[in-house]
Amino acid sequence: MEASFASVKTDLMNNNTAAAVERIQRYLEEPNDIPLNIAITGESKSGKSTFLNALRGIKSKDEGAAPTSMTQTPMEVTPYPHPNYPNVTLWDLPGIGTTKFPADEYLELAGFERFDFFIIISDTRFRENDVKLAQEIQKMKKKFYFVRSKIDNNIRDEERKKDFSKEETLRKIRDDSVQGLRDLGFESPQVFLVSSFKPHIYEFSELHETLERELPAHKRDALLRAMPSFSLKIINKITVFQSRIKYWATLSAAVAAVPVPGLSAATFNLSMMVSVVTDYVTGFGLDKQSLEKLAASSGVSYDDLCADIKSELAKEKITKEFFMIMFISLASKAALMAAEKVSRWIPIIVTAASMGISFTTTYLTLSDFLSQLADDAQRVFKRALVLETSV
Rank of each mutant, 00 (worst) to 15 (best):
I58L: 00
R125C: 06
P259G: 07
I357M: 11
L12N: 06
A54Q: 11
N15C: 04
S231D: 08
A256C: 02
R125Y: 08
R114V: 11
P261L: 11
F126D: 09
L55K: 05
N236Y: 11
P228C: 06
A331P: 01
G185D: 02
E43N: 12
T71D: 12
R383T: 08
Q372C: 08
F192C: 05
S301K: 08
S275K: 01
L107D: 03
P67I: 08
Y80M: 13
F5P: 01
R225F: 10
V386Y: 11
A266L: 04
G285Y: 01
W248Q: 12
A295Q: 05
Q72Y: 09
H208W: 08
P35K: 10
T68M: 09
S60Q: 00
I346T: 07
T282C: 10
S69C: 08
P261Y: 01
L373N: 04
R23P: 00
K142N: 11
D33F: 07
Q190E: 14
N153G: 03
E168R: 15
E128N: 07
H218E: 12
A253M: 08
D157K: 08
G47Q: 07
S329G: 10
V277C: 11
K219E: 05
F268M: 13
N236T: 14
L93E: 04
S297M: 10
S354I: 15
V21E: 04
D368I: 06
D116E: 09
N37K: 15
N53R: 10
V300S: 07
T169V: 13
A226S: 15
P74W: 00
V281C: 07
E316P: 01
S195E: 03
K162T: 08
R125T: 12
S290P: 02
F284I: 02
A39T: 08
A339R: 14
E43T: 11
Q135K: 15
V191S: 04
R114C: 10
S149K: 02
E158C: 00
K139E: 13
C306Y: 12
H82S: 09
R174Q: 13
K143W: 03
T282P: 02
G285I: 04
L370W: 00
V342F: 09
E113C: 00
I58E: 05
D176V: 10
R23H: 14
I173F: 12
Q289V: 09
A134R: 07
A217C: 05
E167F: 03
D175A: 15
I34Q: 09
S329R: 11
W345L: 13
M355T: 04
F101V: 04
A110V: 12
L251G: 06
F230D: 09
S390I: 09
V300L: 09
K293T: 14
S46P: 07
V342M: 15
E22K: 15
F381W: 05
S69E: 05
F126R: 13
V21K: 03
D130S: 02
E312F: 08
S311H: 01
T351S: 15
L93V: 01
P31V: 01
N16Y: 03
I245S: 07
K100G: 07
R383Y: 02
D92V: 11
R174C: 03
L373V: 15
S7G: 14
L170D: 05
V277R: 06
Y145T: 04
D308H: 07
K61P: 00
Y247L: 10
K9V: 12
F241G: 07
T99K: 14
W248R: 12
A339E: 13
W91N: 06
G185L: 05
A110D: 00
Y202S: 13
W91P: 11
